[in-house]
Design a protein around this nucleic acid. Structure first.
Lengths: 115, 115
DNA sequence: TTAATATATGAACAGTTATTCATATATTGA
DNA sequence: TCAATATATGAATAACTGTTCATATATTAA
């Protein structure tokens, strides 16, 4: 392979290979993003930016069926994007931490969309 | 539906529904995250943090076949995560902007992994 | 123009995932 | 304990996605 930037690119490639995170770490990060990669789940997260909510109200806010929302909440919780606490008959969901808010806002800025 | 926080949750649900971004905007954001949601693509992005590279060197840095890497670069470019410029026989790829770097770093912080 | 090199892409297959439907579990009030 | 309500979940299906293989396109040097 020959290119004008052979040296710089080869050095960058070597540095990149040396500093590549481990397979498991990369998989964990990928799983985080996968949780954010579906419209149905993003809707839930945009909704929870307005405050914690139980499942019934999440369904009200985002539409769809209770079952589908519940399945998606499970994925979001498993990925550490939302957290849940029981409150009587209800489970109240909220965004896990400020990283989630920050990532959502960055992505929206990147895509020039208001939230 | 009756819960102790009926009023607060109902208000949050109403605000959430009123301020929900449009279907297309949500889809665009989801597409961004989808691009970040596969280990093979994350590896490419972690590599490009060390500097712009042509495809040959990206393959060297992340492993795999040229074809697979090229397919993944297409997805990353389509989602606006990386940009490309031709340089003679080579196409040189780089991260699209600072948002990408910031999102990657946030996700890694969230998952407690070093990059 | 031709050969060589770098990159892109279409088709096919395997693996993954979102939704729906039916049902299960957990909590509360009577 | 029983009925009602809120939420979760297993199975099935349809849609989607990543990789591979073969091949096409684009650029350069001769």
């Amino acid at each position: 392979m020959v290119c004008d930037h052979e040296n710089e690119h080869a050095m960058a490639a070597r540095r990149a290979a040396e500093n590549m995170p481990g397979t498991e770490e990369i998989a964990r990060v990928a799983e985080s993003f996968k949780a954010l990669s579906e419209s149905s789940r993003l809707k839930i997260l945009f909704a929870l930016r307005h405050g914690e909510m139980c499942v019934y109200h999440i369904v009200e806010a985002v539409g769809g069926t209770q079952s589908a929302v519940s399945h998606q909440l499970r994925i979001l919780k498993g990925a550490g994007i939302v957290k849940a606490r029981r409150d009587g008959q209800n489970i109240v969901y909220s965004l896990a931490d400020e990283h989630v808010v920050a990532v959502l806002e960055l992505a929206c800025t990147h895509q020039k969309c208001k939230i």
